[in-house]
Design a protein around this nucleic acid. Structure first.
Length: 280
DNA sequence: ACCTAAACCTGGGCGC
DNA sequence: TGCGCCCAGGTTTAGG
């Protein structure tokens, strides 16, 4: 089962590790095995030295000193692995050759992910990145991206009548939250995922805002959530799945009220876990 | 602006 | 054994 996909904490974990592994290295070549993943432009990279790794929502951006950047979205099953054993493998689609014989592998079982090569100065205007909403967690020193302040969060919620969980996952409104952490944050805040955002009380909004930061921080602390698809660039698995509050706990007794069973419903076509007693 | 459903893919799990 | 079906979820696209 591929339940645990890269959301903000997983991608932030990847960013932190890649920054450590890659900064200062020169790129020698790029081997593209699948044009579905990387359409073109990789010829602009060789000769460039990696100067930093940024993250915009769930997108990783590797910056080179020759004015170009690689934008990478892992979607559901993408991996970025530095110097892994048994690689390249069946699902390796792009290989970045670095100096000293080092390699960075892009693996993706389902091939939903993508890599785009763009001029560094055009990254924030990219057709995907340019549409992202503010960030609940700005990892890098300066991404050029607006942080999600409580005031901004209130504004976003004030206009919306769609279920709060769907709004939280809308990347054009707020970037970085996916299905796991949206479920987790709503449980922690004690809010029914079907509620209309515009009807939330001021104190509920504040609690949800704090809960979003709390679950993301915890996710990053544990290096993300792994099942099979997600691994860190180091090849290690994340540990957040051992700390799920509500995600994947259908039929289990809620750890909050200790009496109600967690239910699973569909919202926006996605699995939604919640406690009917604690979340009102 | 909103919604739903299908599409993009693969493989694990399950029923038969 | 193994076939057929469902499910997983980030995002796009088509259609209402």
């Amino acid at each position: 089962m591929f339940k645990n996909m890269p959301e903000l904490p997983e991608v932030e974990t990847i960013r932190i590790q890649l920054e450590k592994f890659l900064t200062g290295r020169e790129i020698i070549g790029v081997e593209v095995r699948s044009r579905k993943i990387l359409a073109d432009g990789e010829k602009n990279l060789p000769g460039g030295k990696i100067i930093g790794v940024r993250r915009f929502g769930k997108v990783v951006v590797i910056d080179f000193d020759n004015g170009y950047s690689a934008l990478i979205h892992l979607k559901l099953t993408g991996q970025l692995v530095f110097q892994g054993p048994n690689l390249p493998g069946k699902h390796t689609h792009v290989i970045f050759d670095l100096d000293g014989g080092k390699k960075l592998y892009f693996n993706d079982l389902r091939k939903f992910g993508w890599i785009k090569i763009a001029k560094s100065e055009e990254v924030i205007a990219d057709s995907f990145i340019g549409k992202l909403g503010p960030e609940p967690f700005v990892g890098q020193a300066s991404s050029g991206q607006a942080p999600l302040t409580l005031e901004k969060f209130k504004e976003i919620l004030a206009k919306s009548g769609r279920p709060i969980k769907i709004l939280l996952m809308d990347q054009t409104k707020i970037s970085g939250l996916g299905n796991i952490y949206a479920n987790e944050a709503l449980w922690l805040a004690g809010i029914d995922p079907r509620r209309a955002p515009k009807n939330l009380k001021t104190e509920e909004i504040k609690k949800l805002y704090d809960s979003i930061h709390s679950v993301l921080k915890k996710g990053i602390k544990y290096g993300g959530a792994s099942d099979q698809a997600y691994i860190q660039p180091s090849g290690e698995e994340g540990k957040y799945q051992e700390h799920f509050l509500v995600y994947g706990r259908e039929g289990e007794v809620c750890t909050g009220c200790k009496k109600t069973k967690i239910e699973k419903i569909k919202l926006g076509g996605r699995g939604t876990y919640w406690c009917p007693f604690c979340q009102v």
